[in-house]
């Protein structure tokens, strides 16, 4: 286990070096890239952004780490985040609620939206036997087009296709989001260690056949991890909306926090607390990518860098298994 940890770390650092190399080749200016890297990891302003962007990734990753432990391989956090932020925007800017009612609605409704949307891949798997990887991936695009539809019709404001913005009194800083993701990581850890649901997840994930023989119901386990991961992702989307997105325009491409969450969960070995730390690392790549935008580096660079890190970690870990 110790050695695996070092290998993951080594693989991740190698991937990071490759990502920096890629950006240097792309812009043809390695000095500027290195300056940006140092700036991102040492200055307070970008570090605050790292904390901001880490929240939806961490919330998604903590939920997904539970699902993956139960061998329910959903990639649906992306779509659940989109719907969570859409609902949060509606509550904050359109519903007319304010004060405690608004806070309560913001805490509950986006999470409910994510959980409801997570029921789809669950039902398709549990009652039809359809593979959840593929259905959840496609449902992400459905969620994106659904959001685009609402943005272009009911939520549209003014001459351009853009929604209203979250009112200033409902906006939050990075502190609330980081607190929420820390709490959910701790909650997931406690769930796994101290509760019957957590035990069922662990037992079923390690030996599904044996677990069924001992009376664990696979459908109930899949349902609980779906609801947990869906509501966490929905809440993550809400926090993203309140802390940095503020408004929505039609998307031609999913924003990628949920995809990053899936990579983070895998990178951390499905550990909730490890997911929290790894999401800070992955978020720093988003901040780095944004700081390089002026140099012509596209937004999707961050997701590519994250994938590069996972791929090199995959290789580093696979070598260990081969030699054993």
């Amino acid at each position: 286990m110790e050695q695996r940890g070092w290998r993951i770390l080594g693989g991740a650092l190698l991937g990071f070096a490759l990502a920096v190399l890629l950006a240097s080749i792309a812009t043809g200016d390695p000095i500027a890239i290195l300056r940006s890297v140092i700036w991102v990891y040492t200055s307070p302003a970008p570090l605050a952004n790292v904390a901001l962007f880490s929240v939806p990734i961490a919330m998604a990753a903590v939920g997904l780490s539970l699902a993956y432990r139960a061998k329910f391989i959903t990639i649906g956090a992306e779509g659940q985040i989109i719907l969570g932020s859409l609902v949060a925007l509606w509550v904050a800017a359109y519903s007319g609620l304010d004060g405690p009612a608004a806070y309560l609605a913001l805490a509950l409704l986006p999470a409910a939206a994510g959980a409801l949307y997570a029921l789809l891949p669950f039902a398709l798997r549990a009652y039809a036997g359809a593979n959840e990887v593929l259905s959840s991936l496609m449902l992400n695009f459905v969620a994106m087009y659904l959001a685009n539809y609402f943005i272009a019709t009911y939520l549209r404001e003014g001459p351009f296709v853009i929604t209203r913005a979250v009112p200033p009194e409902l906006r939050t800083g990075w502190q609330l989001g980081v607190l929420a993701s820390l709490l959910s990581a701790a909650g997931a850890w406690l769930l796994l260690r101290r509760t019957a649901v957590g035990l069922a997840i662990e037992v079923y994930g390690r030996a599904p056949r044996a677990a069924e023989t001992y009376g664990y119901d696979p459908k109930r386990i899949m349902l609980s991890v779906s609801l947990l991961s869906g509501s966490l992702a929905g809440l993550g989307g809400a926090l993203a909306m309140l802390s940095f997105q503020h408004s929505l325009t039609p998307m031609s491409f999913p924003p990628g926090y949920g995809y990053a969450g899936a990579l983070v969960a895998w990178l951390s070995g499905n550990s909730p607390l490890g997911s929290f730390l790894a999401s800070l690392f992955f978020s720093s790549l988003i901040v780095l990518g944004r700081s390089l935008q002026a140099a012509g580096v596209p937004l999707s660079y961050a997701l590519a860098a994250q994938a590069l890190i996972v791929l090199s970690t995959l290789v580093a870990v696979a070598r260990e298994q081969r030699w054993r």
């Binding site: 890629l22 580096v297 596209p298 999707s300 590519a304 590069l308 996972v310 995959l314 290789v315």
Partner: peptide
């Protein structure tokens, strides 16, 4: 990674998708 190192094919495939999306945009920006 998948064929020779027996790495997880789901993780490798998804990572490839994300990496290649980024490389595609990068190529277009260059």
């Amino acid at each position: 990674p998948v064929v020779y190192l027996r790495a997880d094919q789901i993780v490798a495939g998804l990572s490839l998708a994300f990496l290649a999306w980024g490389l595609a945009d990068l190529t277009a920006s260059l």
